[in-house]
Simulated assay, not measured.
Amino acid sequence: MQVLATILAHEAVEPESGELLRFIFSISDELNTQPVRNVVSLHTARVLASELIPDSAVAQMVVTIVRTDPADYDSLVGKAFRHA
């Protein structure tokens, strides 16, 4: 089954939330007609990236987020990650 994870946007979060930034993304596959939208905070992405092997669409996306310079986050919007 082919899975596609796509970064839709990133946004700053209120300081009192404890998060710095979050990324909105969608996940889709052949079985679901509508992509599922989700959110991952930068903090969570950093934790996951230190533990994951980038062998799935979501893991590839998380590792890419963490490796990207904050000044280049806009370049991630629309980026898609595939896993078959």
Rank of each mutant, 00 (worst) to 15 (best):
H10G: 02
T64M: 08
A71I: 08
R82L: 15
E51Q: 00
F23N: 06
I65T: 09
D69Y: 10
L31W: 10
Y73Q: 14
A59F: 00
V66G: 03
A5S: 15
A80K: 05
T68G: 03
L48W: 07
L42S: 08
A9M: 06
V77K: 04
V63C: 10
S17T: 15
V58M: 06
A49L: 00
E30S: 08
V36R: 13
L76Q: 06
I65E: 05
S28I: 02
L76T: 03
L4D: 06
A9K: 11
L8T: 07
A49C: 00
V47A: 08
V36Q: 10
D74K: 03
V66M: 04
A80M: 02
P54V: 10
A9D: 15
R22D: 08
P70V: 00
E19C: 02
A57G: 03
A45N: 12
A84I: 13
P35M: 11
V63D: 04
V39A: 08
N32I: 13
A45L: 10
L8N: 07
V40A: 12
L52I: 07
A59E: 01
S26A: 09
P54Q: 13
L52A: 05
T6Q: 13
A80L: 01
D29W: 10
Q34C: 00
T68Y: 01
H83D: 13
V63N: 03
T33A: 10
Q2A: 03
P70T: 02
S17I: 05
A80N: 00
L20V: 12
T6C: 11
V47P: 09
V63L: 08
A59L: 02
D55H: 12
Q60I: 00
F81T: 05
T6S: 06
T6I: 10
T6E: 14
Q34T: 02
S28H: 08
T33C: 07
V47N: 11
Q2K: 05
E51Y: 01
T33P: 11
F23R: 08
L21K: 13
Q60F: 02
A9W: 08
P54W: 12
L21D: 09
E51A: 01
V13T: 15
S56R: 11
P15E: 10
Q60S: 05
L42C: 06
A49H: 01
N32S: 14
R67G: 08
V62E: 05
P35T: 11
D69E: 13
A9E: 15
L8P: 05
A45V: 07
A71Q: 13
P15Q: 06
H10M: 03
T64K: 14
V39H: 08
S50H: 09
E19F: 05
A84T: 14
V77Y: 07
Q34R: 03
P15N: 04
N32R: 15
I65Q: 04
A59M: 01
L21N: 14
L42P: 02
T64R: 14
T33Q: 13
E30P: 02
T33N: 13
V36P: 00
V39N: 07
T64Q: 08
I27C: 02
S75W: 08
V36C: 03
Q2G: 00
E11Q: 06
E16A: 13
I7M: 02
